[in-house]
Write a protein that binds this DNA or RNA. Structure first.
Lengths: 208, 208
DNA sequence: GGATTTTAATCAAACGATTGATTAATTTTG
DNA sequence: CAAAATTAATCAATCGTTTGATTAAAATCC
């Protein structure tokens, strides 16, 4: 009779991710997850073994999704700075399309509590990092870029985006500003991309 | 007999801050705080009313300490870029002298759970932000600096430092690296300061 | 193909442990 | 002695997890 054939397993994952993002892992109870997902509490352990199992599953799915998004920038026709700009664009777009999750990931990284997850996050991030690293290092070697502290430049690029995501009102001091508002988000996104493109261009390619 | 006249109140604050930094607010129990501080559990409520009261007290003390550290850079003799460099130096030094607390503050900001604290952190941060904002804006107005997206530049400076603090192994890929090691910390600190000085100098003062 | 067995999904209820908080009694201090 | 500090014991509430029973669908058997 009931045609509402919804996947409880998926419902749990979605509810849990939402709650983990909003109130943190420790701050979310299994009962909240059950209520929000419409599933019975026992289903959480039935499908995922434990509360931490839910968390790990969410991370695995997300990280797998990110990895598949990783497009290798290997067209030899474009210059190093152009490669870097494309990576910046992709990075900013991806992070701003997953603000809540990015915040949670960052929180988890700064907590360093669950070692298994810490390593997973680190691995996921290092893919991106190595991509940028190679582009800049190649640019330096072929003379297109100035000699800079590559890792610090990467920290700058990633740190800028994270800072914007976590404290957007620091960038937009007006009170009625909301990253959940698509219009506001678009504005921030373009400002971030333009800024990072401009910054890297000037810093990496200006002849002293 | 026991001459060890230690201030239990202070012991609780110190133990709580350590634990909050290590395992998060929700992840820390009042019993842990009591055990770590050597105080009875009831003392927590006796002195601070509640667990959240402890947290708020820690934040208030810290933020007050930060505010008093804020030295106004107002010597007219030095150039805008020199002012900015001094602020960067002070900022990096302060953050790296309080890594654990900075991580906790950042976590709390990204969680946006306790509204009272969220506002306190925002206020504390905006002091720093306004200081940098004024320096850069003045520099632009008197022609020393290029016209840039000021708020984005600030996000870059602060975001870079935060990124280094939260994920130092991204900057130092060697495995046996530890921010708690004073030697390693010093290395990172100087690299960060040099990078940010160089970056801002090139980006803000290079004539296009 | 119809009856029987097996499997997976779901549920309400309860488990023991732990949570933050409070009590009332005791010790310490000035 | 009175006030302040400290204690052990206890509170109700909530935590993550487990249980045993129930349902419906799938697989197996004759």
């Amino acid at each position: 009779m009931k045609t509402e054939k919804i996947d409880k397993r998926q419902a749990i994952l979605e509810a849990a991710e939402k709650l983990f993002c909003e109130t943190g892992y420790e701050g979310t109870s299994t009962r909240q997850i059950a209520r929000e997902s419409g599933a019975n509490m026992a289903m959480i352990n039935y499908y995922f073994g434990s509360k931490e199992g839910v968390f790990i599953e969410i991370m695995n799915e997300r990280i797998a999704g990110f990895a598949s998004q990783l497009k290798i920038i290997n067209e030899d026709k474009i210059s190093p700075i152009e490669k870097l700009h494309r990576v910046i664009e992709g990075y900013v777009n991806r992070i701003l399309a997953n603000v809540a999750f990015h915040k949670m990931m960052h929180r988890e990284l700064s907590l360093s509590q669950r070692p298994e997850m810490y390593d997973k996050i680190k691995d996921a991030m290092s893919h991106n990092m190595l991509l940028i690293d190679r582009i800049i290092t190649d640019g330096i070697e072929d003379g297109s870029f100035n000699k800079v502290d590559v890792r610090m430049v990467i920290a700058t690029i990633m740190g800028t985006v994270t800072n914007i995501v976590i404290a957007p009102n620091k960038v937009m001091p007006c009170s009625n500003f909301d990253l959940n508002n698509p219009k506001d988000k678009k504005i921030i996104k373009e400002r971030a991309i333009n800024h990072l493109k401009d910054l890297t261009t000037v810093y990496l390619t200006t002849k002293k």
